[in-house]
Design a protein around this nucleic acid. Sequence first.
DNA 1: CTCACGTTTCGACGTTTATCTAAACATCAA
DNA 2: TTGATGTTTAGATAAACGTCGAAACGTGAG
Lengths: 100, 100
Amino acid sequence: MSTVFKALSDPTRRKVLELLRKGPMSAGDLADHFSVSKATMSSHFAVLREAGLVVSEKDGKQVIYHLRLTVLEDALFEFTRLFGWSLAPAEEKPTEKETP
Amino acid sequence: MSTVFKALSDPTRRKVLELLRKGPMSAGDLADHFSVSKATMSSHFAVLREAGLVVSEKDGKQVIYHLRLTVLEDALFEFTRLFGWSLAPAEEKPTEKETP
DNA sequence: CTCACGTTTCGACGTTTATCTAAACATCAA
DNA sequence: TTGATGTTTAGATAAACGTCGAAACGTGAG
């Protein structure tokens, strides 16, 4: 849990997770969204990987990063529960328009 | 937001917040729950204070710490919204004795 | 095989963190 | 005022962090 919060404590890393929400992306493509060196980005990726928030997969020359939503969800769920809050997974049903 | 997550990234500080959930508590009483020096605890309190997660109030010799739930809630709410999750505020305890 | 490309690793540097002991500060009681 | 109690500050140290440029690694194209 500490490693997850630690990972979330950096804005760059939070933005990486946000970008990954839209789908898997290569290290280079991710890095293009930031103005730090590739070395620095690689280090951020490592933190996210060690926290279990992303997984990487090699595809030819590239390394593709995938978001691991469950890990993020589990950590936040466990924590928010301590405070009596309820964290609900993504509601995938905003199509309901029947509320008379 | 970064300061909040940073504060949450330490187990000692998370436990302090958890203890404070039950009600305000003095620095000394809080420190008694941990096996680090008072100076170290004071430093942890400062981190929580700077993140806005707690506020302190002087009462005679003691310093009483209060949990600032709204700050924690706001940060987590904002973040979880990015991931399409819904974080519901604490269920109001049914401590209502009289509802005539 | 050789080369360029995408990515990570290696040192290095300055900053921040967690921790301690010792000292200082603040307040109450005798 | 003196002393005891509760808390914070000061100063020190070792580890971790964010960052960089340069070098190394792995892979596909020619």
